Amino acid sequence: MENLIIQNMNIAYQGQSAIKNATLAFEPNKLTGIVGPNGAGKSTLLKGIMGLTPLNTGAVSLYGKPLKDMINKIAYVEQRQEIDLSFPIDVFGTVLFGTYAKLGFFQRPKQKEKDLALKALEKVGMAAFKDRHISELSGGQLQRVFIARALAQEAEWLLLDEPFAGIDATSEKIIIELLKQLRDEGKSIVIVHHDLHKVQSYFDDIVLINKEVVAFGTVSEVFTANNMGRAYGEAISEMISLGGGTNVK
């Protein structure tokens, strides 16, 4: 299986560089974290991959083909604050929406798609909530529903933007264990993350970014005082070298 590959990605807003010369090859069947200081371009990188933010230069490919031709193989879970919770849709409908990508124009989901959506909800432990409006869910429950939507899409790659932001510790533990299980079952998962305390226990690989890629590789290779200092500054480098770590967004 080939990697998800980004080549020479450049993104700028109003003349200000947000992503500079990013070239990455995400390996499949891994949990990969994207970390860096606030404003480093972590979310922009995901949106650039998905085509939600236009690239000034660069290309994204999956399985050796342009991503636009493989878009059904990849699912994006946005930040919670970007979701319109007033939209009139229940949990089951939200997950069922994931099946639309493989349906033709004017086709409606049939029993096969409904069974797939229910199975996805069962997978994330949310089947009992299928008739609830999405506004009635906690932050952790909502994240699990959107993971279920990605599973109903039968996506092989899951890209999640800050899935642990604003949720309690118990919900975070449930979600990371779910994501690790999905990785072990063959999914490839990329997560924007800010809590440096959790990097070593959560991820296989990490991308360290501050508008440009500072380092990329296994956690043991990248999570060093030198690399963190290059991304965050000397203060955090000293804390990590002393074994303290820190929570930086």
Rank of each mutant, 00 (worst) to 15 (best):
I167K: 00
K68I: 13
Y232E: 03
L4A: 00
A165V: 13
K123V: 07
D204I: 09
N247G: 02
N38P: 06
P54F: 06
E234F: 05
H133D: 11
F129V: 01
T44L: 08
E172C: 02
G93N: 05
V190R: 15
A101N: 08
F146G: 01
V213N: 07
G51Y: 04
T57E: 14
L242I: 13
A148Y: 00
I167L: 00
Q111G: 11
I189C: 05
D168E: 00
I176E: 01
G244I: 11
F129W: 01
L31E: 07
L121C: 02
I5R: 13
G51I: 03
G41D: 09
G140N: 02
D115K: 11
S201V: 07
K30T: 14
Q111K: 14
T44H: 11
F106S: 07
I49V: 15
Q81K: 05
M9I: 10
E113Q: 14
H197R: 15
S201D: 00
E172T: 12
N247A: 05
G166N: 09
M239R: 11
Q81A: 09
G217V: 06
L158M: 13
M50W: 06
M70I: 05
G244Y: 15
K249I: 15
S135A: 07
A18S: 13
D184S: 08
E238M: 10
E234D: 03
